[in-house]
Amino acid sequence: MHRIKAVIVNTCREAIRNKLLYTVVFFLIILLGISSILGSFTMGEVSRFVINFGLAGIELLGVTMAIVTGTGIIYNEIQRKTIFTIIPKPIKRWEFILGKFLGLSIALLFQTILMLIVVILFLFIVGARVYPIILLGGLFIYLIIILTISITIFFSTFSSPILSGLFAATIYFIGNSLGELEVLISRISLSSGERLLIDFFYIILPNFSNLNIKNQVVHNTALPGGYALFSILYAVAYMLFMLLLATLIFEKKELY
């Protein structure tokens, strides 16, 4: 545990020293900027707008940071040769991957919490009501962010940051559209082969739309029974699967 903790602390420190928290300041400035146009809206509209915009902003900045930082997290260690002094130390390769994942996840947890606090304070300032479901919204966004981290770490074990970034971003966008895609496909007739192919992609791609509960948060409507638990378990299972694949590749990797 000592060893994983050391990697976690170091990864967090790297993320913070790489000015990760500047994104929070950037987010605050954008939010303050849009406040100037809120004067003409009714209170209900203001509340919906701030929640919608705020949560979307937290997700977008979080996912961007996950992709930008996560893609280089293993690849750069090899390219910059910092790994040559780490792997010969008594640490298992899976411990290194896990430490890197947890380190970046913790750093982005701070970022998410800070941005959520900014949104909640903003709602208080404009006099809107704050419902507890916003916290669940924050948790689901955080799940999207760490799921993205696990996907980028997986790609980072075998491809360059640019390619990893492209793959991860594509998967994020497709994964977000899977819900709509399912509805669309149900309306057209497909051959059994086409159906099989679509089902295959539906299963292997992460279903980010399961984790998108912004509408429920904006309208303060309860989630269907068991939905939250299923979505959380789904995200955790997919994350573990990605980390397992990353570990299997990294275990065999020759560090020239």
Binding site: N10, K81, T82, F84, T85, I91
Partner: peptide, 18 residues
């Protein structure tokens, strides 16, 4: 085995922010 080894690679690189 690793517990008893000290290794200096050729042209070592470290995290520059540390």
């Amino acid at each position: 085995a690793k517990q008893k080894i000290g290794f200096l690679p050729e042209n070592p690189y470290f995290y520059t922010y540390l």
